[in-house]
Amino acid sequence: MKRKVIFDCDPGHDDAIALLMAFASTRLDILAVTVTGGNQTLAKTLNNAKRVLSFAGVECLIAAGCDKPLFRELEVAPEVHGDSGLDGPVLPESNLPVDDRHAVEVMRDLLDQATEPITLVATGPLTNVGLLLSTYPHVKSKIDLIAIMGGSVVGGNWTPGAEFNIMVDPEAAHIVFHSGIHIAMAGLDVTHRAMVTKQDTERIRSLNKKVPVMVAELLDFFALFHHTMGFDATPLHDPVTIAYLIDPSIITTKEYYVDIDVDGEFTLGATVADQLGSMNQPANTTVMLDIDREKFVDMIVDLVNTYE
């Protein structure tokens, strides 16, 4: 049986690849793509989601969500994703329809109608998901898992203490991590091991079809920033969440209680994992720590190769 998924994202190069993987997988049934501001402004991330899906010939319910974090101003990452949020490949404009409802209402309606559990995937700031859970807490019982790209047990990439997605909207993350719903967290601990090399990119390009070539061009651009960060290869953050849902056996995890820092001067947005058990709290998060890189790359290649 296919796992039912609502995919909340802020495309974003790695979001785009994660979307393509998710729609190609025979294990996942993507009910909706909901978009938030993050890597770029909402107008841009929504446009990017539409263009990627159109380009790949995917039709799906699409909805726009929050254009800024719950209590803070939006921070975007043009140095990583370019001015459009998806610089690199030339993608035509899309005329895919966008639902009239707010993303949070779309999620609520899908969950209300659901007869089996739904998994939320969130690869951007947790604004939409946080707002959903605080506004419509009755839907919690329909959600079996929230799989996120975000956070880090050790170290941060936006500040020394915090990863970008959580840093952008720590209050939303706090709502999510305190929701009582189990979380699968693909943080920097694992995504910095989910490395795609130049050779891997060429392998994808050599599939010589429209979508794989576009993915290779996304990777070309994504590599530029990471080279300036001192990485030889490119950590492919968001796709790890999808890889985990498709085949958790390639990922090493630990169960921790994780809290979100919302008031630190240097640790704001940190995902604080109780590694030694000093809090005596039951684990709320499956924290991903390592990945079989070769199998991960094989999975990406196989999935993008399903597109014509």
């Binding site: 020394p160 203490g161 820092d261 008031d263 630190g264 001067e265 240097f266 640790t267 940190a270």
Partner: peptide, 13 residues
């Protein structure tokens, strides 16, 4: 870190 309610006393490397 000296301000955070949960991370005070963290040496943020």
């Amino acid at each position: 870190e000296t301000k955070s309610s949960i991370s005070y006393g963290k040496t943020v490397v």
